[in-house]
């Protein structure tokens, strides 16, 4: 599948606290964030960040609090104005838009889901769901029909006349999700959208989100501090520390080759061996010979499937790509080695 970039972010900076041109000069001269704060009192929120988000993927931005991830998501719909750099959405640089163009862009192309839900307490569930359409000037009948349709999709239709405070947290955030979906955006920004929910509700909301993605693919930019969540829903994950992007990659890439200790620390409490795939389990020493013997699996085959295939067969398991090319062999000992490596990493860091 050919993918095109939905968002391209180039050398993006955000400086808080004035003196921005001075701070920019210092940053270009290679000064550190802490030194700049000491000298100018300005905080560098986002520091030379570049990445791109592909059309239709769920791009999860991870980081601890204070890493700048909430700032970065707000730069993308310009709730905050970047100090320097480019944000190219569908080929257009949106950092140059004037106020009117920006309002149009927000109404037409993007919507946002908030950690605190940010529903309007004076509006019913239906009116909250239709909020974005109302702001865009859609007439009452059309917007209520559309809002109702999306409420039905997430199973909230019978609560349409209720008010937010009459709903549980999980249901309120479903309304928040509906409000964002009702405007049919091509890009959805989700800022710690499920972080305020209890773990069970969080998983439920992730399932709803994945289900909605299967029905209608959208580009989702998702900010989270929860690695399990990122691994579960993320097509790709970006990890941010101190205003910089440390690593961008698929969940497997990040698990397999964490860029530094900061990234590794995220995995401390997570059993990463669950996310191993066939291509990660290949026995390093064995020569690759295209032997016709034995079964073969695709490179993305999950660990449980590999184990099942491996049981009760003496020959090594072949890993073959889509063209039938043999990439390597999996033996019981290579699987055991890999799993124990991951487990030892986990326990060692506890």
């Amino acid at each position: 599948m050919k993918q095109s970039a939905k968002i391209v972010v180039k050398n993006l900076y955000k400086v808080f606290g004035g003196k921005s041109s001075e701070v920019m000069d210092m940053l270009r001269a290679g000064e550190k964030k802490d030194a700049i704060f000491q000298k100018t009192g300005s905080v560098v929120g986002v520091n030379d960040v570049s990445f791109s988000v592909q059309e239709g993927e769920i791009f999860v931005l991870m980081g601890l609090s204070g890493s700048g991830k909430s700032t970065l998501i707000r730069l993308i719909n310009r709730l905050m104005d970047p100090t320097d750099g480019q944000i190219i959405l569908d080929g257009k640089d949106i950092t140059r838009l004037n106020h009117k163009q920006l309002v149009d862009l927000r109404r037409r192309d993007m919507s946002m889901v908030f950690q605190s839900f940010a529903l309007m307490p004076h509006r019913s569930v239906l009116d909250n769901a239709a909020f974005g359409l109302e702001i865009a000037g859609v007439d009452r009948k059309t917007r209520e029909a559309r809002a109702m349709e999306v409420l039905e999709q997430v199973g909230l239709a019978q609560f349409s006349a209720k008010y937010p405070h009459q709903l549980s947290g999980g249901m309120q955030q479903r309304v928040g999700l509906v409000r964002a979906l009702a405007v049919n955006p091509s890009l959805m920004l989700m800022d710690e959208a499920f972080s305020a929910l209890d773990p069970l509700k969080r998983t439920e909301m992730q399932d709803i989100l994945l289900q909605l993605q299967r029905e209608h693919r959208r580009t989702i930019f998702f900010v989270s501090h929860d690695l399990e969540e990122a691994l579960r829903i993320g097509t790709r994950i970006a990890i941010m520390e101190g205003g910089r992007l440390v690593q961008v990659g698929t969940p497997q890439e990040i698990i397999e080759k964490p860029a530094d200790d900061y990234v590794r620390d995220f995995f401390k409490s997570v059993d990463t061996s669950r996310y191993l795939q066939a291509k990660d389990l290949i026995e390093a020493g064995l020569p690759v010979h295209a032997s016709a013997l034995g079964q073969h699996v695709p490179p993305s085959c999950s660990l449980p499937d590999v184990l099942q295939r491996l049981l009760g067969q003496t020959e090594p398991l072949q890993v073959r790509d889509a063209n039938g090319e043999c990439l390597g062999l999996i033996t019981p000992s290579s699987v055991l080695t890999k799993i124990s490596q991951h487990r030892l990493q986990t326990t060692a860091s506890h």
Partner: peptide
């Protein structure tokens, strides 16, 4: 008015007047 409620107003494309009459004043009532 909660910061995120104001942000929600902006994020969905409120003009200054819409923000006042559809978000800020009703919540401040």
């Amino acid at each position: 008015v909660n910061k995120e409620q104001v942000e929600a107003g902006h994020a969905f494309g409120c003009t200054s007047w819409q923000l006042l009459f559809k978000v800020q004043l009703p919540i401040a009532l």
